[in-house]
Design a protein around this nucleic acid. Structure first.
Lengths: 298, 298
DNA sequence: AAAGAGTTTTGCATTATTGCAAAGGATGGC
DNA sequence: GCCATCCTTTGCAATAATGCAAAACTCTTT
C-alpha cells in the first residue's frame, strides 16, 4: 500500500481551496472523485489530513506537515515539465551576429559565452564592423543596431535603452583646466567618432554637444574608450562600459545625458526557424540583463 | 494535457533498471503497463525519454534532465510518507525522568523542551535527586545515570561520554596565588561534593586529585558551579556547563582531564511500550547532540 | 544452426476509477 | 419559517487503465 503521487496533487488543491468542489474546479475533475481520492490518501497515510466541516476542509496538523512535502514535490514536477517542454534540444551549428563595436566589445562576449555554455554544440560568430549590415545578403544571421531599419524584409525587436555620458580619466581631470559646464568643453581635447565614417546618425553623439572639434578620433568605440583611459581627452562613453574602465569618471552628468536604444534585426523569413528564434530570445534577454547590471555598477 | 505524477515514479524505475520488465518487478505492475505509461509520459512531455533498444532502455539527454527533477519529487514524497507514518500521533500523558542535577540543570531543560514542543500533549517531569533511583518501585519511568546498574530487571543504553575539568572564575584566579600544577592546589579553596553524600562512585571526582580538603561543599553540582562563578574557589565542572558560566575558565587541562558517561536506564518490561520507546529515543538523541554542541563551545 | 530464455509490444477481457445524478445537510437571504 | 444555493456523499453506469496471454524479436548457450 504505497502513496499515490497524483493524490498528493489533489490534496494540495483541496488544501488551497478548502473544499472538494473548489479543488474539483481547479483540477477539472468531479468533486466526488476529489472526495474519494482524499479518503484514499488518508487511509494510505493512516491519519486525517483535513478537519471536515460544513464550513470547509481545514488542514489538520498532519495535513500541514504533508503540505510542505507536497509543495516540494509540486515544485519538482513543475521543474521537470519546464525543463522538458522548454528546450527539447540544445542549439547547434553556427550563428553569426553583426554588431557595432561597443556592443561587440562590452556586451556580446559575456552574453554569448553564457549562451554557448548552455548550447555546447553552437558556434557563435561576433562580427564587429563600423557599418550597417546587409541581412538580405546574409552578411549575418542577425544584427544588433542602434536604429531600427526602415527598408527591407526585416523584423525588428527593441532590446533595451542604454545611457551615455561624457567621461574622462581621473588623471586627465587632475591636470587639465576646469570642466564644470558645457562651455568649458572648448578648452579640452575631445575624443569621438571620425565624422565622415559615422554610419548611423544615432552614433553622432557629439553633434548634441554643438559639434566641437575632435582632436583624437576613431571609428571604434573601443579605441575611443582606451584613449580616454589613457588620459587623451574627454569623450562620450556608454555607461555599460564603465565597469571595464576603472579610473574613468563621468562628468557634467546633469547637463549632458544621452539615451539610445539597441534593436535586434533579423531577416523576416527566419522567424520560422526555431533555433534562430530561441537564440534571439536568449540573446535579447542576456543583453537586457547585462546592460542593466553594468549600468547599475557604473 | 498535464503531467501524471505517478508516471514520473514509473519513469524513475525504468531509468534505474533500464528495462520495462525490471521496472515492472520493482513496482509490481505488468511490463505492458510500464511500457504504456512511459509512452504516455513521452507524449505528454513531447520528447523521447529513453533510447529504446534490445539492449535496454537508456536515458536520453532529456531523460537525464527529467531524472533530476523526478528524484527531487521522489524525495519529497518519501519525506511526506515518513513525516506522516512515522509519527501518526504525538506522545501524550506524563513521563518522569530521574537524573543527577548536572544533567537536570544543564541538559534536560532544553532537550525536554524540544521534545515537548513536538509533543504538546506530553508532560515531562525532571526529578533531580542526589541519589540512585529505584525504577523497580517506579520512582521514575527512566533515569539518566553515570554508572550502569548491575542489579534488577533493567535495560541500559549508553548515551554519551562527557568531559570534566578543573575550573575557576577569572576573578578568583586574578586575586589568588599561582596555580600551574596539581601541587599548587593545596593552597587553594576546593569546591566539591559532600563526601559522605556521594551516591555514585563515578562522581567522586576529587579522589582523582588526591582527596584534598573541600572547604565549600554541596551535594548539588549546580550549587557547586554557582559557587565557582562567585569566585569561591576551584572545582571540577562539566565542560557542557561552561557555556552557561561566562567568566569561568578551565585550568590545568593538560594535567587533569576526566571522562565520564551517561546511561539511560529503564525497567525491562517497558521496552514493549511504544511511547516510552519513542521518548527514550528522542531523549538519547537530544542529549547526545546537546553535549556535543555545548562541549564544542566550551 | 537451433533451441531456450528474456524482453517488448499488442489485443482483449477484467478490474478500477471516474462522471453523473440524486439525496441529504448547512447556510444565507427574504 | 421558508426557499434557494452550495457542498458533500453515495449509487450506478460509463470510461479508462491494467493484467493476461500471445506474437515477434534479440541474445546467449549448446
Amino acid at each position: 500500500m504505497s502513496l499515490n503521487w497524483n493524490d498528493m496533487r489533489v490534496f494540495l488543491a483541496v488544501a488551497r481551496t478548502e473544499s472538494l468542489s473548489g479543488a474539483g474546479r481547479v483540477l477539472q475533475v468531479d468533486p466526488a472523485t476529489v472526495g474519494r481520492r482524499i479518503g484514499r490518501l488518508e487511509q494510505t497515510l493512516g491519519t486525517p489530513l483535513f478537519a471536515k466541516s460544513p464550513q470547509g476542509y481545514a488542514l489538520t496538523d498532519a495535513g500541514q506537515r504533508l503540505q510542505t512535502h507536497a509543495e516540494r514535490a509540486e515544485q519538482a514536477m513543475q521543474g521537470a515539465q519546464d525543463a522538458l517542454t522548454g528546450t527539447t534540444a540544445t542549439l547547434a551549428g553556427q550563428i553569426r551576429i553583426g554588431a557595432p563595436d561597443g556592443v561587440a566589445n562590452f556586451l556580446l562576449p559575456q552574453v554569448c559565452a553564457a549562451i554557448g555554455a548552455e548550447n555546447p554544440d553552437l558556434d557563435i560568430q561576433i562580427v564587429a564592423l563600423p557599418r550597417v549590415f546587409n541581412l538580405s545578403r546574409r552578411e549575418a544571421d542577425m544584427a544588433v543596431t542602434v536604429s531600427p531599419p526602415t527598408a527591407g524584409r526585416l523584423t525588428v525587436q527593441k532590446i533595451t535603452d542604454y545611457r551615455l555620458h561624457l567621461a574622462a580619466a581621473d588623471s586627465y581631470l587632475a591636470q587639465s583646466s576646469t570642466l564644470t559646464s558645457r562651455a568649458d568643453l572648448g578648452a579640452h581635447r575631445i575624443i569621438g567618432y571620425i565624422p565622415d565614417m559615422i554610419f548611423d546618425k544615432e552614433l553622432d553623439y557629439l553633434s548634441e554637444l554643438g559639434a566641437p572639434r575632435v582632436t583624437l578620433a576613431s571609428n571604434s568605440v573601443s579605441v575611443q574608450l582606451n584613449a580616454i583611459r589613457q588620459g587623451a581627452g574627454v569623450g562620450i562613453v556608454h555607461d555599460f562600459s564603465l565597469p571595464a574602465a576603472p579610473g574613468v569618471t563621468r562628468i557634467l552628468t546633469d547637463q549632458i545625458s544621452l539615451t539610445r536604444s539597441f534593436y535586434l534585426v533579423r531577416h523576416a523569413d527566419d522567424r520560422r526557424l526555431d533555433r534562430l528564434n530561441r537564440f534571439a530570445t536568449a540573446l535579447i534577454a542576456g543583453l537586457r540583463q547585462e546592460v542593466a547590471r553594468l549600468e547599475s555598477l557604473a
